[in-house]
């Protein structure tokens, strides 16, 4: 399989940890992975993005060329739009439609979502699902769950990656992380069918 994913949003949304968990899960599944991310000044409320490249053959560059990404994971609907040039024509968008109040976008949600018109997209109200999972801060894990469907990586590998990252915080925290992830994974099901028929088997 080969999967190029761009994760985009703003500092504080857990973008780097989302991409890292995905990368660890890919390694657990025996795949090659490279990622690259923005750090430093970008994190002070600025734009943050991460490129994740997963493949069963060696990956050379960590940066994804334009028009190559199979999936755009838009943690922030407006910021995701600025990365559309990386998406393939047949790629899919998974977009978060809820943001914490201090990350409110400049324009309105409908205008931001209009950037993705005509594209295969899944809208995920990630905050609502995160709260329902008992962990309001794990909206990024809901999004990760939805995005996980674009890969052939089994759930068990994601659970190992989540365990590595959150295991030290105790069983209750870990359980809510699993729950947030699996909720998202159900929401991402339509993408699985679509992409697994193509590049991803």
């Amino acid at each position: 399989m080969k999967l190029d994913m761009v994760i985009a949003g703003v500092g504080g949304q857990g973008i780097l940890s989302t991409g890292s968990i995905l990368a660890v899960a890919a390694i657990e599944h025996g795949l090659n992975v490279k990622t690259v991310e923005t750090r430093g000044m970008a994190q002070r409320g600025g734009r943050v993005y991460m490129h994740v490249r997963i493949s069963d053959i060696p990956v050379h560059s960590a940066l994804i060329p334009m028009g190559h990404a199979h999936c755009l994971l838009a943690m922030h609907p407006e910021e995701g739009g600025t990365h559309l040039l990386y998406l393939r024509g047949d790629g899919c968008v998974i977009v978060n439609t809820e943001l914490p109040p201090d990350m409110m976008h400049h324009g309105d949600l409908a205008a931001a979502l209009a950037h993705y018109n005509g594209m295969a997209r899944t809208e995920v109200p990630a905050m609502t699902h995160a709260r329902a999972s008992g962990s309001p801060r794990s909206a990024n894990l809901v999004m990760l769950g939805a995005a996980s469907r674009t890969t052939s990586i089994p759930s068990a590998c994601f659970e190992i990656a989540l365990q590595q990252r959150f295991g030290a915080k105790g069983d209750a925290v870990l359980a809510s992380c699993y729950k947030a992830f699996h909720t998202g994974r159900e929401l991402g099901a339509p993408q699985a069918k679509r992409l697994n028929g193509g590049d991803l088997t």
């Binding site: 002070r44 409320g45 600025g46 334009m66 600025t82 040039l85």
Partner: peptide
């Protein structure tokens, strides 16, 4: 020279001092 499609006009987010 591949065309570089222009992303949608989204206001910038320059780094600022934390609240």
């Amino acid at each position: 020279r591949q065309p570089r499609p222009l992303p949608p006009a989204v206001p910038g987010r320059p780094p600022t001092l934390c609240k």
